[in-house]
């Protein structure tokens, strides 16, 4: 569990605002490449780890977790050192007023999102959800100073550092989908090649939050026979129904959807049961909201399954997961790797 937390913390510290994954993807390939036969970053910023089976002509299994996180880009530099921003992916803007941010310009610049004190808010304005167009960041710089450090298009992140909570829970921004990246890495890092039934391509993909084109193109390139897409899912909490959520601490979720392969999905459930690994099911009839939708129609079509980790407070700076669920997902993946004929 400690090792899992350590890797997850490391992943969460990487700056990977959607569309700007390249630098962090290179660092990731460098850092973990040694555990694999091959590691590379493609032109879209997808980081690919390859581990080959010793079997001849083994089928290709793609495991995809996305590396990008929701964030912002600078859209204009205003008088008095204010910045306008544009959202990348669907950040929950309710958490924006007075939040601390980091702007990744020529150097890291700290700023605060401007807010009105509660004393001066009207009843109406205090209830309104902030609109991205109206949000400004105060950096304390003059416009001239700021223009020398920041360009339009530079990424911006809200503060949300990794923290450990009680009972094996952790909190951080970008656990969507770095919790799954972590599960995929630990599932394959130390695996015994002689037992693998597949050539495994782990894609830590770019731009899931902004059009999912990373996974779509990397899958087109790899042409897998099978693919497992892993992403976070809604954790059960107040105001969320049982039908649209899974329980934190209840193990990985296995998605049942019209968009995934039925036989493959059933086989995964059976594998989990045979190995005594706890899992939950969630039904997402017409859309899984993941890279699956494009991976399945890449090339001449791919048989896919979707698995997930329950996540609290999605698309905020306080996303939280239970490490047990991360490890449960890794356990199921390990069992898949050694099961022939899927």
């Amino acid at each position: 569990m400690e090792k899992t937390k350590e890797i997850l913390k490391d992943l969460c510290s990487a700056v990977s605002v959607s569309g700007h994954e390249h630098a962090s993807a290179n660092a990731l390939a460098e850092k973990y490449g040694g555990y694999f036969d091959n590691a590379y970053v493609d032109k879209f910023g997808n980081c690919v780890f390859v581990k080959k089976s010793e079997l001849e002509n083994a089928p290709r299994l793609l495991v995809d977790a996305h590396f990008d996180e929701v964030g912002m880009l600078v859209s204009s530099i205003e008088e008095d050192g204010f910045l306008h921003i544009s959202g990348v992916g669907g950040l929950d803007t309710r958490i924006f007023p007075a939040a601390e941010v980091t702007v990744y310009g020529k150097k890291e610049i700290y700023g605060v999102i401007a807010s009105t004190p509660p004393h001066l808010q009207s009843e109406k304005s205090s209830k309104a959800t902030p609109k991205m167009d109206n949000i400004i960041i105060d950096t304390g710089y003059t416009k001239e100073e700021l223009s020398a450090l920041v360009r339009v298009g530079d990424p911006v992140r809200l503060k949300g550092d990794f923290k450990e909570l009680a009972n094996g829970y952790v909190l951080s921004r970008a656990l969507d989908d770095k919790a799954c990246v972590c599960a995929a890495l630990i599932s394959l890092m130390n695996s015994d090649k002689s037992k693998l039934a597949y050539d495994i391509y782990l894609t830590v993909s770019a731009q899931e939050e902004t059009g999912r084109c990373g996974a779509s193109f990397v899958a087109t390139d790899i042409k897998p026979d099978l693919a497992v897409i892993i992403d976070v899912n809604f954790a059960r909490c107040e105001n969320v129904t049982e039908f649209e959520s899974i329980e934190c601490g209840g193990g990985a979720g296995i998605d049942i959807s019209a968009l995934t392969n039925r036989r493959f999905t059933k086989a995964i459930m059976k594998i989990a049961e045979q190995n005594g690994i706890e899992y939950q099911t969630i039904c997402e009839p017409d859309s899984t909201g993941t890279n699956n939708e494009l991976v399945m129609i890449s090339g001449t079509g791919v048989r896919t399954a979707v698995m997930s980790i329950p996540l609290m407070a999605m698309h905020t700076t306080s996303e939280a997961v239970c490490i047990k669920d991360v490890e449960s997902l890794a356990d199921i993946l390990r069992a898949i790797y050694v099961t022939k004929g899927l």
Binding site: S18, H20, V88, R151, G211
Partner: peptide
């Protein structure tokens, strides 16, 4: 709904700057 390839954006900015082509950049909701 679209992020344009950062590598291309960077080259377009660089080429424009080098040849004094007047340009603006668009980041929009």
């Amino acid at each position: 709904r679209m992020i344009y390839s950062p590598e291309v954006v960077e080259k377009l900015r660089e080429i424009s700057t080098r040849h004094s082509i007047k340009y603006q950049c668009e980041v929009a909701n």
